[in-house]
C-alpha cells in the first residue's frame, strides 16, 4: 500500500535527521566529553581522545558512521550516555514508566471527561457559561504557570503533596507498597497540571465541534422531519468525535516525548525531564536515543490513526479505495 511506503520514507528521513543533529551542533562530542575531566598532560589527552573517538565510533569516515548509526537503531543500541555513563536505552527504559503513568491517564481521562462536558455545554446555556471561561483559562494557561501554581498551593502552602521528584528518594525503587504509595503521592500534582490543561482543550474543542454539527444541513433536515432531539444530538456527537479522535491519537503519539515543562517543574523523572537533562548536559547520544523513540512513537500513532479512521469514518474508506484503485 502507498501508505506503508510513505511511513517508511518518513522513518528514513527522520532517522537521518536524528543522526545529523550532533553533527550540525557546535562542538565536538569527544571534546565535550573530555572537557568533563581534568586532564593535564597533553599526551594523556591525545591518547584518551583516540580511545574515546573509537568508543564513540567517530574515528571512521562519515558514511561509515551513518551506517553504524542505522545498525545501532536496528539493534536498539544508541551508545552510552556520557552524563550518566550508562547505556542510553537503559536510561530511557527507566524514564518511560514515569512518563506513561503520568501522561496516559491524564490524556485519556481529560479526553473522556472533556468530550462529555463539552458536548453537554454545547446545548445547555447555563453549563456553557461555566465551562467556556474555565475551559479557556485552563487551555490557555501555560503549563509552567499552572504547574507552579499547583506546586505553590498544594505543596508549599498546604503541604498536601510533595513539590518534586517521582518518589521519595529514601525508598528503593521496586514493587513495594511503600514505593507505590510514595510514587502515587508524587504523581498527583504533575498529573493534575497536565490533566487540567488538556481537559480545557478537549472540552472547548468538543463544544465548538458539536455546536457546528448541530448547525449543519443534515441536522436541520432531521429536525425538519421531526426527528427527536436525542437522535439529532447523537448524530452530532458521533460526527464531532471524529476529529477529536485523531487529536487523541496524536496526543498519545507524542506521549513518548513526555511533557517537558511539567516534568521539569516537578523534577518528575520521565522522558521530558530526561530531554531537558540531555540538552543541558550536551549529552548527544542520549538526545539521539530519545528522539529515535519519539520518531517511532509519532509514526506508530499516525499509523494507528489512519487505520482507526478507515474503520470509523466511512468517508476516508472511499478516498482510500479511490487512491489505491
Amino acid at each position: 500500500m502507498k501508505k506503508v511506503v510513505t511511513y517508511l520514507v518518513a522513518f528514513f528521513v527522520a532517522t537521518t535527521v536524528d543522526w545529523g543533529i550532533p553533527h550540525l551542533m557546535p562542538g565536538n562530542p569527544v571534546e565535550i566529553y573530555l572537557s568533563r575531566f581534568n586532564i593535564s598532560s597533553n599526551t594523556q589527552y591525545v591518547a584518551l581522545q583516540k580511545t574515546i573517538s573509537e568508543s564513540f565510533g567517530v574515528n571512521v569516515p562519515l558514511w561509515q558512521q551513518y551506517l553504524d548509526f542505522w545498525k545501532g537503531v536496528l539493534h536498539w543500541n544508541f551508545g552510552i550516555s556520557f552524563y550518566e555513563t550508562a547505556p542510553v536505552t537503559h536510561i530511557i527504559a527507566q524514564a518511560i514508566p514515569y512518563t506513561l503513568a503520568l501522561l496516559v491517564p491524564a490524556i485519556l481521562l481529560s479526553y473522556f471527561l472533556g468530550n462529555r462536558i463539552g458536548a453537554m455545554a454545547a446545548r445547555r446555556k447555563v453549563l456553557d457559561n461555566v465551562v467556556l471561561p474555565i475551559g479557556y483559562v485552563f487551555q490557555a494557561a501555560p503549563y509552567a504557570w499552572l504547574a507552579l501554581l499547583l506546586a505553590y498551593v498544594f505543596a508549599v502552602r498546604l503541604r498536601w503533596f510533595p513539590p518534586s521528584l517521582g518518589s521519595n528518594p529514601g525508598i528503593a525503587v521496586g514493587w513495594s507498597w511503600s514505593f507505590i504509595l510514595s510514587a502515587l503521592h508524587h504523581w498527583v500534582l504533575p498529573f493534575l497540571s497536565v490533566f487540567l490543561v488538556s481537559f480545557g482543550g478537549w472540552s472547548i474543542g468538543m463544544r465548538n465541534l458539536v455546536i457546528y454539527e448541530l448547525e449543519t444541513d443534515y441536522a436541520r433536515y432531521l429536525r425538519s422531519l421531526g426527528a427527536s432531539q436525542r437522535l439529532v444530538r447523537r448524530y452530532a456527537y458521533r460526527n464531532a468525535v471524529l476529529p477529536q479522535l485523531s487529536g487523541l491519537a496524536l496526543a498519545l503519539g507524542v506521549v513518548v516525548g513526555g511533557n517537558i515543562v511539567t516534568e521539569v517543574v516537578f523534577q518528575y523523572p520521565g522522558l521530558g525531564h530526561l530531554i531537558f537533562l540531555a540538552i543541558t548536559n550536551e549529552d548527544y547520544f542520549l538526545l539521539q536515543g530519545i528522539f529515535m523513540f519519539i520518531i517511532i512513537g509519532v509514526l506508530l500513532a499516525n499509523f494507528v490513526i489512519d487505520i482507526a479512521y478507515v474503520v470509523i469514518d466511512p468517508r476516508t474508506r472511499l478516498s482510500m479505495t479511490g487512491a489505491t484503485a
Partner: peptide, 29 residues
C-alpha cells in the same frame, strides 16, 4: 407536512448509510 429542502444535496448525514439513517429517523418518530 414535509420538506425537500433547498440544501437537499447536503441534507443527509455523511457518516450514516441512507437506509440506516432513515431507520433511525423513523424509529425516533
Amino acid at each position: 407536512v414535509s420538506i425537500i429542502p433547498q440544501y437537499a444535496m447536503s441534507a443527509l448525514n455523511p457518516t450514516r448509510k441512507i437506509g440506516r439513517m432513515t431507520a433511525d429517523l423513523l424509529k425516533s418518530r
